[in-house]
Design a protein around this nucleic acid. Structure first.
Length: 321
DNA sequence: AACCCTCTCAACCGCATAAGC
DNA sequence: AGCTTATGCGGTTGAGAGGGT
């Protein structure tokens, strides 16, 4: 006998999540932690599969998520990482704090792929396309290639430079070199991932702001005005200035969810942080993810979202803009 | 204003692997 | 050790938004 089944799929709801469901899920996770997803639907009163709950949480509700378009810098990272790791989106996402594999995958498929093709680079192999695409034959030539062509043995073109640098002043000296051998290494540690980004950081000095959604500091409001009292930041790390993003809880007609970074605000779920803090300290014991806890702490403390996140989660020096 | 087309992205599906029994 | 389930991951889909005509 093995484990109990995750859920009997009879009568389970599917499709877009409602605000009510999100509230339930958030409430449950905040008070119980991410202990076991199988139990979440039952205990939280959701008519969802545990898998669906996990997905909703990790891809949308998690407080440490960045939202909005990927910056040039992040795009570069994705391209470089993809050259080394292929479609291992979760690995790629792990190097981009606040980004999910789903988000990166979507961005790759909708933006980066096109961009690369436009620049004459095969998004699959990261090698220059054999023939410069013309208006007429582009669709017929490229599509089959991408679907059928296996990864080429050696890749030495300057992907990020060609792909992204074309439109920006940033020159990167990073050369994305990869060999067949390296590409097929089973273990991630065999692949030198950190190197390129150190150099990128050096050259770029952190994020490029070109494509970053324009959020002015005064617009960042992670805490509601009434709760920005210093008492909140009692726990661990230094509480950075509690500037706040009061981006509207606007939403599309079909979904209340928006690009608002603060989902709880959307849901009118911002708790009393004073009591919450103690609740969390209890519930977070179920989180065995230190990064998450520290991120959560930052979030609660009104951290300077991106910088703090990247420095906290990824242990990178905070990029200067 | 209405229709059509394209694009985006949240969510689902199925498979692989990890882990419990 | 082997079976069964949980979890994680990547591929795919489909609804809705937005732009063009």
């Amino acid at each position: 006998m093995g484990r109990q089944p995750c859920c009997d799929k009879v009568g389970l709801k599917k499709g877009p999540w409602t605000a009510e469901e999100d509230k339930k899920l958030i409430n449950f996770i905040l008070s119980n932690g991410q202990c076991c997803w199988r139990a979440v639907p039952k205990l939280s009163g959701l008519l969802r599969c545990g898998k669906s709950c996990r997905l909703r949480w990790t891809n949308y509700l998690r407080p440490d998520l960045k939202r909005g378009l990927l910056s040039d810098y992040e795009e570069k990272m994705v391209i470089d990482l993809h050259a080394q790791l292929g479609n291992r989106w979760s690995k790629i996402a792990s190097h981009l704090p606040g980004r999910t594999d789903n988000e990166i995958k979507n961005h790759w498929n909708t933006h980066i792929k096109k961009k690369l093709r436009k620049m004459g680079i095969d998004p699959l192999t990261h090698k220059p396309l054999p023939t410069p695409p013309t208006d007429r034959d582009q669709p017929q030539q490229e599509q089959p290639q991408e679907d059928q062509q296996p990864p080429l043995p050696s890749l030495t073109c300057k992907i990020s430079e060609v792909a992204v640098g074309q439109n920006s002043e940033i020159e990167t000296s990073f050369e994305s070199s990869i060999t067949e051998e390296a590409k097929h290494k089973e273990k991630e540690e065999d692949i030198n991932i950190e190197g390129p980004f150190d150099s990128l950081m050096d050259v770029n000095n952190g994020f490029c702001t070109d494509d970053i959604p324009l959020i002015e500091p005064h617009e960042i409001n992670l805490l509601p005005p009434c709760t920005t009292a210093p008492s909140i930041s009692s726990t661990t790390t230094t509480s950075s200035s509690s500037t706040s993003s009061s981006s509207s809880a606007s939403s599309s007609s079909s979904s209340y969810s928006s690009s608002n970074n603060n989902i709880l605000e959307d849901l009118d779920l911002l708790p009393n942080f004073d009591s919450w803090q103690s609740d969390l300290s209890n519930s977070l014991v179920f989180w065995d993810d230190d990064d998450f806890i520290s991120t959560f702490d930052l979030w609660i403390n009104g951290g300077d979202s991106d910088r703090n996140l990247s420095s906290t989660v990824d242990d990178h020096p905070p990029p200067t803009q």
